[in-house]
Design a protein around this nucleic acid. Structure first.
Lengths: 191, 191
DNA sequence: TATAATATATTACGGTCATCATATTATAAA
DNA sequence: TTTATAATATGATGACCGTAATATATTATA
């Protein structure tokens, strides 16, 4: 006879908490700089139980990245849906290149946050990024009513501007990178 | 009486070798994933001598980043100078977004390679990046004969395209990201 | 209320890290 | 050739890593 000693779905909930904790931690501190004990602490657990949920850290990395990108697409969709007057792509560009998004890496788009590290990750992780980036480009292109080639260039501009705006020390330069990105991203859509 | 046991300039040469080794290693594997022993081995030395050249790892990071960006600007200048017919900015864009540059991170531009990690680095390192990025934007803007705001957007597009092209697993998608970036970067210059 | 099954915690292991103290080596001058 | 010493190597320290084995806590059911 099979009994269920813990509440039904308990383990899945805990597992999701670990993924969420990891997705947040990776965006804030990078993949390699975040330890399993740190992630588990973020989920309110101790590190030992980790391996009853995941085979290894790499598996969690892949899941957390997929979770984070999906989350961002959902958020951008919501941002677009709330706009009633201006072109919806403009609203998304403005959000993506806002000081808020720049300064809150831990809940933002994972692509600029982990950009460098992804190319050095395992095939499994890169596969996830490839799939999710394709979804992101499709989403952006659809919203802007442009083809996916142009959509790729648009999203590249957005990612590059955000990455550089986060790298610099000088607030004026950072703001200028954001606003230049916004302006020419919108220009790109309209030409 | 003071004796000089090693040839004049010996230590400076060794120090430069360490910086070069670090600049290459950081671009290939990221800052945090590269250890001091690994860098020293790359310079043909053992780890212990490191602290007679640098106060700590962070100081080397800052120097290696400055070295790497200067190196890249010099290289791009040379690439531009070799072009006789087309607009020189086109040649630089084509080089920057070439498969060669995408696939040889270790000798390429450090900004896309370390983008995510820079924003989490010390003030000292971010200060270096700020200064060198300003130089890079000035160089690009001057070459394209556009103002620095437009130049910022142009360089953002280049960085973003390269970052995303390196992240994905799918060769076609990667190539498409490069060519989309090239096309719209050139469009941006001319409009 | 006891039990069985499952979720989480504790503890340990082997490895690598940055850093430092000390020993050794290489070489210019005496 | 000897000597002084700068440059480099060796080895150690304490911290933290990913991973794993084992122990403990939890709770739906009998």
């Amino acid at each position: 006879m099979i009994t269920i000693p813990y509440p039904k779905g308990h383990k899945i909930k805990v597992r999701n908490k670990i993924v969420e904790s990891a997705a947040q931690a990776f965006r804030t501190n990078g993949i390699h700089d975040v330890s399993v004990p740190f992630i588990m602490k973020g989920a309110g657990l101790t590190h030992g139980g980790f391996y009853s949920h995941f085979d290894n850290k790499e598996q969690l990395v892949a899941e957390a990245c997929r979770y984070a990108i999906s989350d961002t697409i959902t958020l951008l969709q919501k941002v677009a849906d709330e706009e009633k007057h201006n072109p919806r792509i403009h609203t998304v560009i403005d959000y993506y290149l806002s000081p808020y998004h720049r300064d809150n890496t831990e809940m933002g788009c994972i692509l600029p946050a982990l950009s460098g590290e992804i190319s050095r990750s395992s095939e499994e992780v890169r596969q996830v990024f490839t799939q999710e980036l394709e979804r992101m480009i499709a989403f952006i292109s659809n919203l802007a009513e442009i083809d996916t080639v142009k959509g790729s260039a648009l999203f590249s501009t957005m990612v590059g501007s955000l990455v550089l705006a986060r790298s610099v020390n000088n607030p004026e330069l950072s703001a200028s990178l954001l606003s230049a990105g916004k302006q020419y991203a919108k220009d790109l859509v309209m030409t």
